[in-house]
């Protein structure tokens, strides 16, 4: 199977902007570990998982926003809130997730901005 990065490349080549969601820190019991990744497309499709359940749905919603604005964002998912839900992913911890927009030509664009400001 293609690695997640090959799949990302495929989307970027088509001109899509993606949001790469990464768990950067956790507290308490969480479904997945620091470093786990999920990629969200502009259409809301998901590759990979950061644990499923309600947390993932929230992240997906925020990700679409991040894609639209092309600005990164830190999102905190509190799994304690889910305790009464039927979600199978109830763990009771907190995850901090970094949502990062990736698109083709981003590096060149940032490079130009840098030149402009210096």
């Amino acid at each position: 199977m293609d690695s997640i990065y090959e799949q990302i490349k495929g989307f970027l080549e088509k001109g899509e902007t993606l949001a790469v969601a990464t768990i950067v820190s956790t507290r308490g019991s969480t479904p997945r570990e620091v470093g786990a990744k999920m990629v969200v497309t502009a259409w809301g499709e998901i590759l990979g998982t950061i644990g499923g359940g309600c947390g993932e749905a929230d992240v997906r919603r925020e990700a679409i926003e991040v894609i639209r604005k092309r600005e990164p964002k830190m999102v905190r998912v509190d799994l304690l809130d889910d305790i009464s839900s039927d979600s199978p992913a109830v763990c009771g911890g907190i995850m901090n997730i970094f949502l990062d927009p990736w698109w083709k030509g981003q590096e060149e664009m940032l490079e130009k901005e840098n030149e402009g400001s210096s």
């Binding site: 690695s3 090959e6 990302i8 490349k9 970027l12 990464t22 990736w102 083709k104 030509g105 590096e107």
Partner: peptide, 22 residues
């Protein structure tokens, strides 16, 4: 994000170790 994504793909293909700092 050409160089970076390609670099990541290469790392995976070669089974090399790397760190992505953000």
């Amino acid at each position: 994000m050409k160089g970076l994504v390609e670099g990541l793909i290469q790392v995976k293909q070669e089974g090399a170790a790397a760190v992505l700092a953000t």
